[in-house]
Nucleic acid binder design. Sequence first.
RNA 1: GGGCGUUUAGCUCAGUUGGUAGAGCGUUCGCUUCACACGCGAGAGGUCGUAGGUUCGAGUCCUACAACGCCCACCA
Length: 885
Amino acid sequence: MTEIPKAYEPKEIEKKWYPIWEDSGYFTPKMDSDAQSFSMVIPPPNVTGYLHMGHALNHTLGDVLVRWRRMQGDKTLWLPGTDHAGIATQVVVEKQLTKAGSSRQALGREEFVKKVWEWKAHSGGTIQRQMRLEGISVDWSRERFTLDENLSRAVIEVFNRLYEDGLIYRGEYMVNWSPVMGSAISDLEVEMKEVKGHLYHIAYPIKGSDERVVVATTRPETMLGDTAVAMNPSDERYRHLIGKTVILPLVGREIPLIQDEFVEKEFGTGLVKVTPAHDPNDFEMGKRHNLPFISVIGKDGKMTSEAPSAYQGLDRFEARKRVIADLEAQGYLVKVEDHTHNVGHSERSGEPIEPLLSTQWFLNVKPLAEVALQAVRDGRTRFVPEPWTKIYVDWMENIRPWCISRQLWWGHRIPAWYTEDGQVIVARTEAEALEKYRASGGTGNLRQDEDVLDTWFSSALWPFSTMGWPTETKDLEAFYPTTVLITGFDIIFFWVARMMMMGLKFMGDVPFRTVYITPLVRTSEGQKMSKSKGNVIDPLDIFNKYGTDAVRFTLTAATTWGSDIALQDSKMEGARNFANKIWNATRFVLMNCEEVTDPEWIDTSSTPATLADEWILSRLNSAIRDFNVSLTSYRYHDAANLLYHFFWDDFCDWYIELSKPLVTAKGENPAADLARQRIIFVLEHSLRLLHPIMPYITEELWQRLPHSGESIAIAPFPSVDETRIRPEIENDMDSVIETIKKIRNIRAEWNIAPSQTVKILIGTHDAHIRNLIESNSGHIERLARVEALELHEVLPPVTAAARAVVGNIEIAVPLEGMIDFAKERERLKRDIEKSEKELGGLQGRLNNPSFVDRAAPEVVAQTRERASELTAQLEKLVQTLSFLQ
RNA sequence: GGGCGUUUAGCUCAGUUGGUAGAGCGUUCGCUUCACACGCGAGAGGUCGUAGGUUCGAGUCCUACAACGCCCACCA
């Protein structure tokens, strides 16, 4: 056993243990064990760069559970990995190419993808390193990446099966198009932003009449693609126009006036221009009324050849200006109003989305959603905290087809091939596609679809694709469904909902029993962290500053159901101080207990456990029990907090202090030997209790303590001995503690120098308490710096004394010549007032007949008991005060 | 437009079947007490957002309102 340094230096010990844990295979489940399974898959971080505080929180909360369950003896798997993150990663690499004066187009698809793989190797490596620094106990032997061979196989399999089921289809529909990225994106990737724009009122002449109708639009440039004007069928104002046609200004096209319930009579003029190719609503109307679809804006965001020649090639925003100018010049612009409205923007690239017609692959998720909805309604998957259930349910109930194809190069290429005459063949491989084609008599060549799948398509399979699906593996058998998914609320739709659908569809069961939604980590001022604000905290920086264990403890203790986490230095400092406390308490114990060789509790008939011993056992077992209860219901804050107070308050402030005389005693002394044995026992248990939250410091210290087993990471979690939880012992100890505190309080109030000892008199008619005080008088004398403690049944009237009452214990500290009677009377009066106030409340209730009748009997009994206690205390206080008159 | 969350001590937040408010930090006072000044001991500090209601009893349940924050949404 080596000397322990005085100061806790997290860096030194934190770099030591992770390689040992990992190399020893502690985090790999023993597949032959018949213990119950506990499994999680990590939300795979994007290989776009570095981990942030959100990851650190997620990983900490996950690791607390996993380490706890592993120590409980479960067959435990936490599967790590990363996500290829199609768009995000492609954008990162493209930016690098732009900087280097190149582009993906210049490189070509094959070379570009190679470049992205290089980046992935770099970024993925960084992420792995960071995860190891977090100390998380993931099974690296099962690490996965969404583009791994088997995961890609799963993607192709799923695509094929969904296609065979008719749920995946290809067709020309209105999609959210990002001109910047040159790709379609899903509804979820569109962010609505409030934009200050204008509402343009434009006059369309009625054919064969002098009358003009006025439509209002925020996007005048789309009028070039108008194929109708719509009114509400019940709108009397325009009844006379039914059946007429209008002439589209600037274009000259004759378009019908149609009637559609969609049109709100109250908005604008009650007439809507209909551009079926550039607006989702108009698209629907166009289909309902069989209108032509004229695409006037292209995928590059420029006006197409279907627009009048004057506008062709103009950027869509340039075209807007030109259209307005021309309309005005030609007298069609009636008025322009300021108008604030919401415009869809590409979440990734930031520019306004262009709704346009495009041929894409879609997944009809409705049937899958119904099953996934039912699973949550049945409670087969549960959201914690519960309110998130509604968010999930609402979205699932209103789910719309998912556009799954992306015009990118980085991702899973869509397993569809086209014949020269335009047939589509979906297959597992090109060979299979060709075979199918030949079998149907086809002779030409096949060309694979250029597009890739939405990155979330592969993420949706993560809980089972990572475990080997579609092969029926032992991992799937043992670990699917996973026990819990820990994730952020921001990806409930993107990821959680889709995993639910895919898991139920392909595994026939939910992917996880519980979804735990973490809070959001914010800055100390409660701001959201974002790169653009430049207020992002790098987890590694604060690991370095405070120690990983301290940050883990901070995050765990800050995780509550109600609110987000404001990450403040003061919290981390507090946790670091706690770690230092653990360090120094252990240092103290080890300095004195070198001869103890095993961490067992020993009672002998000659030296039975003391009150303090029984008490700390009771507190320890309560802590274990409460910790288990808290974590079982995902109450991280409670779990961390109770350990903090058990260790600091109960163990350090009281048990160590009470044990000091014996523990530090020199020479032959069996009682001292037992005391050392016992303090080691409690400390060793405490470290195991703390290990899930603070793995490094507990391992380091545990290794220096007498222990059995090679690592605390695989040591058994302390088990609860309910028989050791004893309220009567805790009450007795509380009496001793309160007595000591009262004396200390008097000392502080009367400015008695710490070096000065005092005499005290204690009076109580309660024989049990008298016995208790007597047997603990040594503790009281030492911890309250008392030189002589006199016990009485009834306290003699000593006037020159400071006084206090604890329950039925009276305390007098004779302070000859030091005491100011007036001041002491004031002090006592304050005590009396306090007691009177409480007693008044209690008696008020007891005097109320309906309280006595209607309140629960035990509540009434409790109230009576407390009232009589207070009455006795008050009597003594009043009597004491009378001594001072 | 719909929905959700938050509002408790100077600050950040706990408070799960309704029983009479807690923690950490900060603050005040006193301590180099032989594990720890990242410490020890002792204090001060709150009409629990507002207004009603239910109840013997409300921080906790119900209703309305207010402020702040978030999510969803096809009024051009």
